[in-house]
Design a protein around this nucleic acid. Sequence first.
RNA 1: CCGCCCUUAGCUCAGACUGGUAGAGCAGUCGACUGUAGAUCGACUUGUCCCCCGUUCAAAUCGGGGAGGGCGGACCA
Length: 346
Amino acid sequence: METAQRFDLVTRNTAEVVEENELEELLADGSPSVYVGYAPTGEMHIAHFTTIRKLADFLNAGLDVTVLVADLHAHLDDEKSPFDLLDARTEYYQEAIEGMVEAAGADPADVTFVRGMDYQLDEEYALELYRMAAETTISRSQRAASEVVRESESPNLGGLLYPLMQSLDVEALEADIAYGGIDQRGIYMLSRELLPDHGWHKPVCLFAPLLSGLTGEKMSASDEASKVNLTDSPDVVAEKIGDAYCPTGETEGNGVLEYVRYLVFPILDERGEHFVVERPEQYGGDLVYETYGKLESDFVSEELHPQDLKNAAGEYISEVIEPVRSRLNERPELLAEAYPGTHGDQ
RNA sequence: CCGCCCUUAGCUCAGACUGGUAGAGCAGUCGACUGUAGAUCGACUUGUCCCCCGUUCAAAUCGGGGAGGGCGGACCA
């Protein structure tokens, strides 16, 4: 594959690339490594899927892909995960992520999985962390983490260590590229500032867009109605999509459209399939879309009605998460042990 | 180690001084209107008032003890 083609694959559906020319150089030089980290906190949902789906693009472009399950981070961020649940949540996250990689049409065996505490307690790592802590002001660290770490009236030190550790992770995992949601921008900009003084180079940063929730606002992981869970049954998916905010002709804040764009279409592309909207004859009959762009322009011109879009989107989303859902359902103990409060009795 | 403050609906809080078994906003649920949802109207729901003991006919409210959280002081060979 030519460098330009790989560049397009790597950067498609991203919110920002810092810096594009640095990425071009990396790709021209060979097979750079990219890493993405997930802190095993709450249950994984469809927005995670869109970022993991993109790992297939990286693999197809010949990148070396590492997924970090950042267990310590999950605890450092306002104790989102209790210390004694870190093992169970880490195991659940890895299983879910593997399922999503596979559902995206890639081979999970091609992804390197690393667990945070496996190296974050090493001497060199700890020493560099203390050095960074000495060099970084409280407000600088707070600013870097502000979009990621949970806000609180009485913030703990953990949230201040968080961005420093994440920066060190780039070096520890020898990553050339750091990938994550655009909410991670603050942290990686700090990384680019700090790492050159700590024995590593500035990472190229690739940011995924943050998807809208189904309620018309930012997706909230704690609001069930605003997201589709990986274990939601087809009925529940249909219901949530049906209830979603989806104004006629409006693309802004339209979660349904975004899921179709960032999750469904890339996976259909990978399979060489098209997006079919079944529509009653009275409204003009079925529609077939080969690209998201055409679907969006039809939606904007109001040729495609929200109700018809929702019906189709619900089915496709349901189908796309099906392999992950069944994989997780095969091992119910994973969720039960990771979330004893909500899945313990099931 | 000492002192002060806070803890009430899913969330933010009022009520406490002047005891009479609890309220607002937001959220949520349901209808109406739309070929979806939202917006807008209409209706509705929501609680171990942090825990224990005591005073009282009666305690969210008063007294004592405890837990969790916050703030400050002191100590600094």
